[in-house]
Amino acid sequence: MICRKSDEESIQIAADYIRRGKIVVLPTDTVYGFSGIVDGRHYSFHTNEKICRIKGRDEKKHLIQLISKTEDIKKYTRDVIPDELLEKWPGPLTIIVHTFAKDGNFETTAFRCPGDEWLRKVIALCGAPIYSTSVNRSGFAVLDNIQQIKNEFGKEVDLIVDDGDKKNGLPSTIVSIDENGEVKVVRQGTVTVNNV
């Protein structure tokens, strides 16, 4: 199915698909992304595996998780995140923090609170973080032309939200917080961050 971001019901439609474990293509504040709900305590849709299968990506590589509010990050990590980073949210900054794994150990997870208000409303309606990764086959260029996205992935995803072409869209900046609380820049993107 295709809907336009400008459609009055687009937020509700996108959230309905995501809540039911469907894989959708959403416009973000950077580039188009494959999205699906992050599995919770009461359901397991395996959306991470589904997205990786479509991309041809190693399932062991974790996907970015999008949250609707800056303060939501505190639900998932005990890491102390410097205020100068949190002040850049909502926006195209991804922060890698330590989270609890299912086996009780720590793992690292990348979170972003996107700058696009429409997208934050979709995430809020989902009631859980959603995965996001660029729309492309693994090892190939990110697709920024909506018609190309429809042609390439229209039969493999359940919904595409059309917001026109995303020419020259830069990916998010990625930083990580290590065990000592130090911030390291992993990738400079749209937002400029110095090692803190």
Rank of each mutant, 00 (worst) to 15 (best):
W118A: 07
L86K: 09
G104K: 01
G56Y: 09
P129K: 00
Y76W: 15
D162R: 08
P114A: 12
I64Q: 09
I64T: 15
K166E: 04
E84G: 01
E152T: 13
E152V: 08
E84Q: 07
R112C: 05
D72T: 09
N105H: 14
L63A: 09
D162F: 11
V142L: 00
R137V: 00
L143S: 08
P129A: 02
N151T: 11
W89S: 08
E84S: 11
D163Y: 12
R137T: 01
W89I: 07
L63K: 09
P129Y: 03
K55V: 01
A110T: 06
I67C: 09
E87K: 14
P90R: 09
L63V: 11
D83L: 01
P82K: 01
E87L: 10
T108S: 12
G154N: 04
Y131W: 09
L159R: 08
G56Q: 04
D158G: 09
T94E: 03
I67N: 05
K61T: 14
V135Y: 06
A110Y: 09
D116E: 14
D144F: 07
P92T: 08
T70C: 10
D103G: 07
T99W: 09
T94A: 13
L159H: 10
N151E: 14
I51V: 12
Q147H: 14
C52Y: 05
I64K: 10
D83E: 13
Y131R: 02
